[in-house]
C-alpha cells in the first residue's frame, strides 16, 4: 500500500497524485461499506465466505491510504508554505483521518467489540458523505489550479474504462468460477471512472474552459466543423455512456453465479453490452482527438 502511495507520489508531484489516492480510497470505502452491510445482513450473499476478514483487510487498506493521502496533501501544502488547516479541504481531510483511525485501531485492539459496534457503524456511514464532499472539494481546488490536468484526468479515466471493459469482455468469453466476481468489480470501477472522470470532470471542463477558450479558437480556425458537428455530437452522445455502464453494473450485480456459468445467452448479451460501451469509449476518444487537433490548428492559424 505504501509502495502504491509512494509510486503515485513520485509520478505525479502535484494534486493529481493526491486525487488518484483519494479515488482509490473512495473505491475501498465503498467496498468496506458493502462488506459491512453483508455482515449485518443488509446485503444478501449466497456464499458470504470470510467477510469479517475481508472487511478488516479493506478497512486497514483504507486507513493506510487515508493516512498516505493526508501526508501527501500536507506535503503539497507545506511546499507552498501554507497551513493544512487553512482550507476546508484540509480540515475535512483531518476529520476523515481521525474517523479512519477511530474505525481501524479499536477494531484491531478490542476483544469485545459489542459495545463499540454502534459507534463503528455510525462513523462508517458518516465517513462516506464526508469523503465524497472532501474529494469533490479537492477536485474543485485542483481544477482551479490547472485545467490541463483536468483534461488529462478525463482522458486517463476514459482509457482505464476501456481497459476495464476489455477485462469484462474477456471474463464473459472465458467464464470460470470467479469470473462473475471479477467482472462485477471491473464493472463497478468502470461506472465509477466514467461518472467521476469522464462525466463530471469532462463536463466541468466543457462548461468552464472549452466554451470560453477552445470553442472560439476552433470556430475561427480552418476546421469549424470540429465544433459544429463533432463536439456538439460528442457532448450529447456521451450522456448515453454512463447509462450503459450503470446498466451493465446493475445486471452483473443481479445475475447469479449459476445463471452466469450455465446460460451462454446471458453471457453473450452482456458481451454485446460491454462491447457497445467499449465502442462508445473509443468513439469518444476519436472525437476528442479530432477536437484537440482542430484546437491546435486553430491556435496556430
Amino acid at each position: 500500500m505504501l509502495l502504491v502511495i509512494g509510486g503515485i507520489a513520485l509520478v505525479y508531484e502535484r494534486w493529481i497524485g493526491h486525487a488518484l489516492i483519494a479515488i482509490i480510497s473512495l473505491a475501498l470505502m465503498v467496498y468496506a461499506l458493502t462488506t459491512g452491510a453483508i455482515l449485518k445482513g443488509r446485503i444478501k450473499k449466497k456464499s458470504p465466505g470470510n467477510v469479517i476478514k475481508l472487511h478488516k483487510r479493506v478497512g486497514i487498506y483504507f486507513g493506510a491510504l487515508i493516512l498516505g493521502s493526508f501526508i501527501y496533501g500536507l506535503w503539497l501544502r507545506l511546499e507552498n508554505g501554507e497551513s493544512i488547516l487553512a482550507s476546508v479541504h484540509g480540515k475535512l481531510g483531518l476529520i476523515i483521518l481521525l474517523i479512519g483511525v477511530l474505525q481501524v485501531i479499536p477494531s484491531l485492539i478490542l476483544k469485545n467489540r459489542a459495545s463499540y459496534r454502534i459507534l463503528h457503524k455510525i462513523m462508517g456511514y458518516s465517513l462516506a458523505p464526508i469523503l465524497i464532499i472532501d474529494a469533490s472539494w479537492g477536485l474543485h481546488n485542483g481544477v482551479i489550479a490547472g485545467t490541463k490536468n483536468l483534461v488529462l484526468f478525463h482522458s486517463i479515466t476514459g482509457g482505464l474504462s476501456a481497459l476495464l471493459l476489455v477485462w469484462i469482455i474477456i471474463e464473459m468469453l472465458y467464464p470460470a468460477d470467479r469470473s462473475l466476481g471479477r467482472a462485477r468489480i471491473a464493472s463497478y470501477l468502470t461506472a465509477l471512472l466514467i461518472t467521476a472522470g469522464c462525466w463530471i470532470a469532462g463536463g466541468y471542463n466543457y462548461l468552464t474552459v472549452y466554451g470560453s477558450q477552445v470553442k472560439p479558437v476552433i470556430l475561427a480556425g480552418p476546421h469549424p466543423w470540429a465544433h459544429e458537428v463533432v463536439m456538439e455530437a460528442k457532448e450529447h452522445i456521451f450522456v448515453f455512456l454512463p447509462i450503459i455502464a450503470f446498466a451493465l453494473s446493475i445486471t452483473l450485480f443481479a445475475l447469479d453465479r449459476d445463471a452466469f456459468l450455465g446460460d451462454a445467452k446471458s453471457r453473450r448479451a452482456l458481451t454485446i453490452t460491454a462491447c457497445l460501451a467499449l465502442f462508445m469509449v473509443l468513439l469518444m476518444f476519436l472525437m476528442g482527438a479530432v477536437i484537440s487537433n482542430a484546437g491546435h490548428t486553430g491556435a496556430e492559424a
Binding site: 446498466a247 446493475i250 445486471t251 446471458s266
Partner: peptide
C-alpha cells in the same frame, strides 16, 4: 435470474 435485463431495458428506454 429471470429478470436480469431490467436495467438494460431501462437503459434502452432512457
Amino acid at each position: 435470474m429471470k429478470e436480469s435485463a431490467t436495467s438494460i431495458a431501462s437503459a434502452a428506454i432512457t
